[in-house]
Simulated assay, not measured.
Amino acid sequence: MLRHIDIQNCEQVTPADQPAPMLDWIPISKIVMDDEYQRELKPNNWAAIKRIAADFHWSRFSPVLLAPIEGGLYSCIDGQHRTHAAAICGFDRVPAMITTVTKAEQARAFVHVNGSQIRVSGHQVYRAALAAREPWAVSCRDAVEAADCRLMMNNSTLAKDKKPGEVFCIALIRKLVEAGKAGAVTAGLQALRAYEPEKVALYADYVLTPWLTAVASDPAFVNADLVAVLRKRNPYQVIEAAERYAGVERLPTAPTKRQFFERQILEHGFTVAA
């Protein structure tokens, strides 16, 4: 059965005012990648490129998305894997949709095209969103940097490569900041920096998720003496105790760990020296 495009039951939508794109075959030599928002090609990316090249068919090649930039070049918004694969196959041109947009809009387009797909990590989405000056990304960066920490744009899987204050849990920070808890993010991270400045493991998701969600659970906790809370009982002991309790009582682990930190803050974060 064949169907035509039928929109009779849809309301008409007026799109944003914008120049119409062009379709053309563009020399690969004129296509460049802007590392401010494009992903770095790592071994897994090269493996994907080589898989595309090994079974290359134009019928499976959707036009790449480009934006003209100075020097007669084109910035690749989407399609760098396909373009590399075409080059490996000996082609010197690729079909492209060319849209004249600002650099910020190029980064926003990258986020929109790739943000919901598994092949682009949250770190890559954050980096592109920051390049586009997306409010959520700027707010996340600012909340973390206010604590003398850094929200990382790339994920490092090797512990030896990580440094104190480097925060990798993009999703957690974004969730808290978008919920209006940026102050809690800053306060929680500041406490960790003051507690053990050189301890890299404090910035792992294992610690940050229950700790920051606990600090964010009550507006009053932002003004608590959070360093005193951490010194009274170190966060690893709190987490281990919560995990044991959750196991015995058959409770969900994540909220139990958060609640244990909340209790610690209530008991030790508001004491007044005599």
Rank of each mutant, 00 (worst) to 15 (best):
K162G: 05
V177G: 02
K163C: 12
V185K: 00
A184P: 09
P197M: 05
V167Y: 08
A201Y: 13
V185G: 01
A171G: 13
G180Y: 02
Y195W: 13
G188P: 02
I173Q: 13
A204S: 14
A191L: 13
A159E: 15
Y195N: 01
D205Y: 00
Q190M: 14
I170Q: 11
A191R: 00
D205I: 04
Q190T: 14
L189F: 05
F168G: 00
K199F: 13
R174Y: 06
P164N: 05
I173H: 03
V185Y: 06
E198S: 12
G183E: 04
Q190S: 15
R174T: 12
K175M: 11
R193E: 08
Y203E: 00
D161T: 14
A204H: 07
A182H: 03
P197Q: 07
R174Q: 07
R193N: 12
D205K: 05
A204V: 02
G188H: 01
K163V: 10
A201N: 14
A201R: 05
R193G: 04
G165R: 01
A191N: 07
K199I: 05
E196D: 12
V167H: 13
L176M: 02
F168A: 05
L189H: 05
D161E: 13
K162P: 09
G180I: 01
Y203L: 15
K175Q: 15
Y203P: 10
E198T: 14
G183P: 06
K181N: 12
R174I: 06
Y203I: 10
A184W: 00
Y195I: 05
A179F: 03
A187W: 04
Y206E: 14
A201T: 13
D161I: 11
K199Y: 10
R193C: 10
K163Q: 15
V207E: 02
L202C: 07
A201Q: 11
C169I: 13
P197T: 06
V177M: 00
G165P: 08
K175L: 09
L192W: 04
K162D: 08
E198Q: 12
A194V: 02
K160R: 12
A179W: 03
T186K: 07
K162F: 08
D205L: 12
F168C: 02
L189I: 07
K163N: 09
T186P: 09
T186V: 06
A182M: 01
E166Y: 06
G165Y: 03
K199Q: 12
R193F: 11
E166Q: 14
K175D: 15
T186N: 10
I170E: 05
C169S: 12
C169Y: 14
L172M: 07
L172T: 09
A184L: 05
K175R: 15
L202Q: 04
P197C: 07
A191W: 03
R193A: 04
A179K: 11
D205M: 01
R174E: 11
A204N: 13
F168D: 00
Y203A: 10
